[in-house]
């Protein structure tokens, strides 16, 4: 087990499995976010549920580990791959043979990482360590995350950054979803095509979902 991480396919396995784990997380994250549309109480209660359920609390360090693993091993692989063609081709035409996102996963990943830092400092840091207001629903006092989030989304450049983040994420997932299955060996001729399709649909849903929310509030604010 230890030694197979010395080999490229073993390392890719970690990137793939952590990627799938992050994909699961993204699904939950989007589901919770959609409560924003339902209103202040619904969202705040959902956020409270997430923050107070022990089973979910445990996931937080795991999630952090997943991110770190994903980033660390894809970086290692990318840097190794960088050195495999010291003399570049004068002319490269990959327009017909591979997709742009598939060739630029690291760039997309890096952009997502920058977004993530911003995102965490905006929300996660504030919710954990910042000054939050509290609201009481039926005797339970919960953080007013709703106001924190919507307060940001009505600022246009915040919204733009969040939409951009969602687009990067979507592009990353268009390739990442099926690629993860392929790396884990969970694919064949028939399923590769299906996974590509499922991955694309999934990526569109995630990207559209995450982009929709800031736009909803931004435009809601503009036209109200």
């Amino acid at each position: 087990m230890n030694s197979f991480l010395n080999e490229s396919v073993g390392r890719k396995f970690l990137v793939g499995i952590s990627g799938l784990f992050l994909i699961m997380f993204l699904t939950v994250h989007l589901a919770v976010n959609l409560f924003l549309i339902a209103g202040q109480e619904a969202y705040n209660m959902a956020a409270y549920f997430m923050a107070s359920t022990p089973a979910i609390r445990v996931m937080e360090p795991l999630l952090a580990a997943g991110f770190l693993l994903h980033i660390a091993y894809s970086s290692v692989l990318t840097f190794t791959n960088q050195g495999t063609r010291p003399q570049k081709y004068a002319l490269v035409d990959q327009s017909e043979t591979s997709s742009w996102p598939s060739r630029n996963m690291f760039v997309l990943g890096f952009l997502i990482l920058i977004f993530l830092v911003l995102h965490l400092s905006n929300f996660w840091y504030n919710m954990k360590f910042g000054e939050m207001t509290y609201i009481e629903y039926g005797g339970v006092e919960v953080q007013d995350a709703y106001s924190l989030v919507t307060g940001k989304f009505i600022i246009w450049w915040y919204a733009v950054i969040y939409v951009a983040g969602a687009v990067f994420l979507g592009l990353h997932l268009v390739h990442g979803f099926s690629s993860a299955f392929q790396t884990l060996g969970l694919s064949n001729k028939l399923w590769y095509r299906r996974l590509k399709l499922i991955g694309t649909i999934y990526a569109v849903i995630i990207a559209a979902g995450f982009a929709f929310i800031p736009l909803w509030f931004l435009f809601g604010n503009l036209f109200s």
Binding site: M1, F4, V9, G10, K12, G185, S187, K189
Partner: peptide
């Protein structure tokens, strides 16, 4: 086909987890 790469990964991982 890329499907053969998937099989390679599978064979590799099966062996990786075995030893």
């Amino acid at each position: 086909s890329l499907a053969h790469i998937a099989r390679l990964n599978r064979e590799f991982l099966k062996e990786g987890f075995r030893s």
